[in-house]
Design a protein around this nucleic acid. Structure first.
Lengths: 122, 122
DNA sequence: GTAGAACCTCAACAATTGTTGAGGTCAACG
DNA sequence: CGTTGACCTCAACAATTGTTGAGGTTCTAC
């Protein structure tokens, strides 16, 4: 059995400042997402956050989801479907991606339908 | 030449209550959209709102646009591109629809891209 | 072992997107 | 006319999604 989860738990972990810089997401927003349960972190003995690499994925996903009209609560529910606590597998991400794409596409379809009704064939 | 615009301007106009009931959008929201300049109304001598049929289209569009992540400000800018004040033609709606669909689709594409990066080929 | 940068929490503020309620007016019907 | 429901405005409140700042702690590098 593997006692680690394909991530380098050995690594010291990213500080919130490093994550902010690399992701382009403000540290305040990162803390906010964490408070909402969308992401999580380890803490040092001195109570500072340390992130694993997968947080970058989650942040990118959160931003992309918001851009297609999902609320943070909806993103949170989607992420909650991932296996709790541990590094998600490719299959986990894949299933999640499928659901999100479906949802987004159905919203687009709805918009298209409304727009088509607005511009009827002359 | 037609001196009206394919709408029945003769009609007394819909009250805000009628619009609310038929569209499913709360009267308070309708007033809010109007304050933001997304829709407009005539007023009776007694200052009450009277709407033309096209407001139903606009309301449906506003809702659908919000569902794909456009802010009211963005919807407003899109609607502002319609010929000011008068009943939009089919072509007007059509051009608008094209732009909105493009925007929405590009957001979906972005999400798909992020999700694909998240779930790499095993 | 200490200076300074980066971090912590918590509270207050801010923009967006509305809803609710008070207090007053309009319109439609008899 | 008078009544009654629908409407008006304006202000206050509320949820979401953050940002800012005060006041204090930790980490790193010298």
């Amino acid at each position: 059995m593997k006692q680690d989860t394909s991530f380098d738990w050995h690594e010291p972990g990213l500080t919130i400042g490093q994550v902010a810089q690399r992701s382009g997401v403000a540290a305040s927003a990162i803390r906010f997402y964490e408070a909402q349960g969308l992401i999580s972190s380890d803490r040092t003995a001195g109570n500072q956050r340390r992130y694993h690499a997968d947080v970058m994925c989650r942040l990118a996903m959160i931003e992309a989801c918001q851009r297609v009209g999902l609320t943070l609560a909806e993103v949170g529910r989607a992420l909650a479907a991932l296996p709790p606590g541990q590094a998600p597998t490719s299959e986990d991400w894949d299933a999640l991606a499928g659901r999100l794409r479906t949802e987004a596409q159905s919203r687009i379809d709805r918009l298209s339908e409304v727009l088509r009704a607005l511009a009827p064939p002359a």
